[in-house]
């Protein structure tokens, strides 16, 4: 008998080997993949997020937990396919044009995936037009934009304006984050949410999709 709590615990402990083994056993025992995701992995990453927020976990602990989650997700993904019903919502995320900083965006992406979102990570230094294309193609509920530099955060505004021009802005919510970003800046460019860190980003994403639905 597989306890889904054990899968959660393996994620919390960052034990990738154990998370993978337990997931394989659960599949063999015919536990539905979506149950493993929502009752095993997501609660585990939720605890990780809380610990990160409370300064009990730091970047290394989050990264090893995310790696454990991914080890299990690699098994589940082909079985879950991209059926929208298996995910809370789709998030497109990237670091904006001119900015090559990766790790903050990566942690946010991992946390969102761990919270049950389908995450499409466009990478770093992504031009505005590529973001717009990705929005058209994937129809996300959330667009997450990251910038570390004072000189690149203005590109967030360009993206929001481009989405408005294309008539896409009303179909999604934009969350912004990164070292120089403030609540005031987020409001000034028309973003819907400001995430000082990845955990709060997940909380805002959850709140925003509830608002959308």
């Amino acid at each position: 008998m597989i306890e889904l709590n054990d899968i959660s615990q393996a994620v919390i402990e960052g034990n990738a080997k154990k998370a993978k083994e337990l997931t394989l056993i659960a599949i063999e025992k015919n536990v539905p993949p979506e149950t493993i995701l929502h009752k095993g992995l997501v609660p585990g990453m939720d605890v990780v997020g809380q610990k990160f927020k409370n300064n009990e976990y730091y970047v290394p602990e989050v990264l090893i937990a995310a790696r454990a989650m991914n080890a299990a997700l690699d098994i589940l993904r082909p079985k879950l396919a991209t059926d929208a019903a298996n995910y809370k919502a789709t998030v497109v995320i990237c670091t904006v044009k001119g900015d090559l900083h990766d790790i903050g965006k990566n942690i946010a992406a991992m946390m969102l995936e761990g919270a049950g979102f389908r995450v499409i990570d466009l990478g770093i230094a992504v031009p505005t037009e590529k973001v717009v294309e990705a929005v058209k193609l994937n129809k996300p509920a959330i667009l997450g934009l990251s910038a570390l530099l004072t000189t690149t955060m203005t590109n967030m505004k360009d993206i929001i304006e481009a989405l408005e021009k294309e008539g896409l802005k009303d179909s999604l919510k934009v969350i912004v984050g990164g070292a120089p970003i403030t609540e005031e800046f987020a409001k000034s460019i028309g973003a819907d949410g400001y995430a000082p860190d990845a955990t709060i980003g997940v909380q805002i994403a959850n709140a925003l999709i509830q608002g959308i639905s």
Binding site: Y58, P60, G104, D197
Partner: peptide, 12 residues
């Protein structure tokens, strides 16, 4: 550090 904490834990 970053905005809300140190990158590594104080212990590390």
């Amino acid at each position: 550090g970053y905005k809300t904490a140190t990158i590594f834990s104080p212990k590390l």
